[in-house]
Amino acid sequence: MKILARHLTADLFNCQNYQLNDNELIKDMLVNLIQKFEMQLIRLSMEALDSSHTVYMAVLGQGHITMHVYPELKYVSLDIFLCQENAEPDKLGQAVRNYFKPDKTKTTVLKRGDFGTAKDLKPKVKTKVAPLRKIHNTGAKVIRILARRNNNQ
């Protein structure tokens, strides 16, 4: 089976990095990681969608990296798509996790591309949930914050 790309998605919960809303530091981290992994950066953009949600997008010669950062929730949504059969987005994902220091992560890795005949088109998905530290009722905290935000609007 020929794989055209590898795609990693990760949810980083209860991030301990106190610089979640320092846009320049996060952009610098992305640039440094792209250089460290010897990837070609075509464009890096950052867009603050509102005061509590910022999106970072790095377009690479090998694919893309997208991050949605929610400082109030201490949450980061990460998407790494690398257009190489032998790509290892999990190594890049680990470096991003090391920067944000989450208590818990949920990671999914997909092999993208040609999956053979029509009957074999169902992709193989590997999902891993890994608690890094004990979380105290994070789901309830997220719901309360979102409810407060909706009530204030």
Rank of each mutant, 00 (worst) to 15 (best):
R97I: 01
R43H: 15
I65M: 11
A87Q: 08
G63K: 01
N17K: 04
L44S: 03
V109T: 12
V109Y: 08
L12A: 02
A10H: 03
P89E: 05
L33M: 09
L30G: 04
M67S: 06
V69Y: 15
E24G: 03
L110K: 00
F37M: 03
T66K: 14
C15W: 14
S52T: 11
L49C: 07
D28H: 09
L49A: 08
I65E: 12
P71I: 14
L49P: 02
P71Y: 15
I42H: 09
L4R: 02
K74R: 12
H64A: 05
H64F: 14
T107R: 10
F13S: 05
L25I: 02
V59R: 00
T105G: 11
L12G: 00
N32A: 15
M67W: 11
F13I: 02
I26D: 03
I26Y: 11
E47I: 07
G116W: 13
K106F: 12
N23A: 13
Y70I: 05
Y18P: 06
R112D: 05
D114T: 01
R112V: 08
F13T: 00
M67E: 06
K104M: 06
A87S: 11
Q19D: 13
K74F: 11
K106M: 08
I26V: 15
L8N: 01
C15P: 05
D114H: 11
M67N: 08
M46R: 06
L82Y: 06
N86C: 09
H68R: 10
K104T: 02
I26H: 02
D22L: 08
A95T: 01
E47Q: 09
E38P: 01
S51P: 04
Q94R: 01
N98P: 02
Q19S: 10
A48R: 12
I80T: 03
L82S: 03
Y99E: 06
Q40T: 09
H53W: 15
R97D: 05
K106S: 10
G93S: 08
L12F: 14
G61R: 03
S45V: 09
F37P: 00
K36R: 13
S52Y: 13
E85H: 05
I65N: 07
P89I: 03
I65P: 14
D79V: 08
K101E: 12
F100T: 01
E85L: 07
A48D: 07
R112P: 01
E72L: 13
K106P: 02
H64N: 12
K27A: 14
Q16G: 07
L82P: 02
E88T: 00
Y99T: 01
Q62G: 04
P89V: 05
R112K: 06
D90S: 07
H53C: 10
N14D: 13
H53Y: 15
K91E: 14
Q62Y: 12
L30W: 14
L60Y: 11
A87L: 08
L8F: 06
T54E: 08
S52Q: 12
P102G: 05
I26N: 03
E38R: 05
R6H: 09
M29L: 13
Q94N: 03
L73S: 04
N98C: 04
F13G: 00
N23K: 14
I34N: 11
L30C: 05
I80R: 01
L78P: 10
N86A: 15
M29Q: 08
S51M: 11
F81Y: 15
A95H: 04
I80G: 01
E88A: 07
Y75A: 06
Q84S: 14
L60I: 04
H68E: 10
L12K: 01
